[in-house]
C-alpha cells in the first residue's frame, strides 16, 4: 500500500558481508525484508546501491525454499496480496517487486483468495498497485513458452447482515 513507501526498510539475516568500495551487501542464512506492511522472506539477498543511494535488493530462495512476499493493498479494510517465486527483485526507488521463475501472486480479501496468477514472471508495483505477468523470466512475452494462468474468483454476494 502507498503508506509503505515512506517507511524505512528493515532487513534481517543470519550472516552479512559488505564491500565498502562497491557498496554491495551480501546477506545469507535466512533473510527477511520488512517495509511497512510489505514482508519479503528468502534464503539469500544481494543489496546493491544506486548512486543516489536507493537500494536494489535481489533475493533468491536457494535450494531449500522459495522467496515469499506479503503486503496489504489499498482500497479496502482487509485487502492483501501475497506471492512466491524462486527469485525476487525489489527496487527501493520504483518500489516494484519482481517475481521470477515459477512465480505465483494471489490477491486476497481477508483469508479468501479473489484472484490468483501463476507464471514465469510476475511483477507488482506497490506504489501504483499494478501487477504485470508474462510467461518468460525476462518479463517479456515469449511465444509458445507456456502461458500465464489467472484464476478469478466470483465476486461474493454482499450478505445482507
Amino acid at each position: 500500500e502507498k503508506a509503505d513507501s515512506n517507511k524505512e526498510t528493515i532487513i534481517e539475516a543470519g550472516y552479512g558481508e559488505s564491500d565498502g568500495k562497491t557498496s554491495v551487501r551480501r546477506l545469507s542464512k535466512g533473510v527477511s525484508l520488512v517495509r511497512g506492511t510489505l514482508i519479503v522472506k528468502a534464503e539469500n539477498a544481494v543489496v546493491t546501491e544506486a548512486p543516489n543511494g536507493d537500494q536494489f535488493v535481489v533475493l533468491t530462495g536457494g535450494s531449500s525454499r522459495k522467496v515469499t512476499f506479503r503486503q496489504k493493498r489499498d482500497g479496502g479494510p482487509d485487502l492483501w496480496v501475497d506471492g512466491e517465486a524462486d527469485r525476487a527483485e525489489y527496487n527501493q526507488s520504483t518500489e516494484i517487486v519482481k517475481f521470477i521463475s515459477k512465480a505465483k501472486v494471489r490477491y486476497l480479501e481477508g483469508k479468501r483468495v479473489t484472484q490468483e496468477q501463476e507464471g514465469e514472471y510476475l511483477s507488482y508495483d506497490s506504489k501504483n498497485d499494478i501487477a504485470v505477468g508474462t510467461n518468460s523470466t525476462s518479463g517479456q512475452h515469449v511465444d509458445g513458452s507456456g502461458s500465464l494462468k489467472i484464476i478469478l474468483q466470483p465476486k461474493q454476494e454482499k450478505q445482507a447482515n
Partner: peptide, 8 residues
Amino acid sequence: VRIQLNKR
C-alpha cells in the same frame, strides 16, 4: 544481522 535502511 539487522540492517535498517534510512527513509529517503
